[in-house]
Amino acid sequence: MPASGSADKPLTIGISFETLQTGFWVASLDAFQAELAKRNMKMIQAIADGDANRQIEQVKNFITRKVDGIVLVPKDAKACIPIIKAANAANIPIVLYNRPPDKSDAKAVAVVADNFALTKETVTYMIGEAKRTGRKHKAMLLIGDLGDINAIGRRDGFEAAAKAAPDVLDVVARVPTEWNQEKAQAGVVNALQANPDISFIFTSSDFLFPSIVSALKSTGKYKKVGEPGHVILGGFDGDATAYQMLADGYLDATGVQDVYFEVEACVKAILDARADKPVEDTIKDPGFVIHQGNLKEKAPRMWGAKK
């Protein structure tokens, strides 16, 4: 079994994404394309448009085409189990990118960000900034889809950091967004109306920043870091909006998922599995926090900073 692509017959990897709705997934797909091209491997792609059953069908198409490995971004942790079983039955290595499966007897490798630790680190940095103002802040948390384990990890990371700083933070609003811009916008507006003195906002994903910025602008609270009335802002992902907000001086910090580490780890896991080398069930991306103090140093590794 070849461990990598050769000149004669390059390995083919099927990449199945649940969605391409946000910049993170688009950047990830691009990173897979680049990584596989670098290794002389071929990529075929399928996007399920948020439909778990369509994703099952698409992965079965990969199996029909006898791909050499499968990378899956599942719709959710449960519906991916029959997909993994189908790949197992066809003896094709399968790696889950960025979203782990529920526990089952199906065999897969998951490459995931350490959502809890990275969020806690990001929020702890924001709390440090809050402390410097010398007053207590009312905080808002934007929660993702709680059917997504990543959203749960980020929520818990925020809560753990907030719990450790009761003298600095009072969490007055927890906005459920279900990863939906419109819901986020309505929730943020409502929360700001109910608590006009909110001065600390963390979003579980950077792609929700446009909703936050819009709501802050409409209330005249969108100020640069250091300006009077600045609302301390933080997020998670490291997308292009977050990078621009950092560069423009509006964003305090964001936890960056290291797309390039995760993509490389996925491809390596498939190759190792094909070569019968041991592969861990879960490979964790430690990620990093990018903020005003380390922007220049860390930006080259931030996927949202790529032009």
Binding site: D49, G50, D51, A52, N53, R54, I56, D76, K78, A79, I81, P82
Partner: peptide
């Protein structure tokens, strides 16, 4: 049939169908 295929009940099943 859809639920059996996905081996789980989903509140967004068939949302895009």
């Amino acid at each position: 049939l859809y639920t059996g295929q996905a081996e789980s009940g989903s509140p967004v099943l068939a949302q895009r169908l």
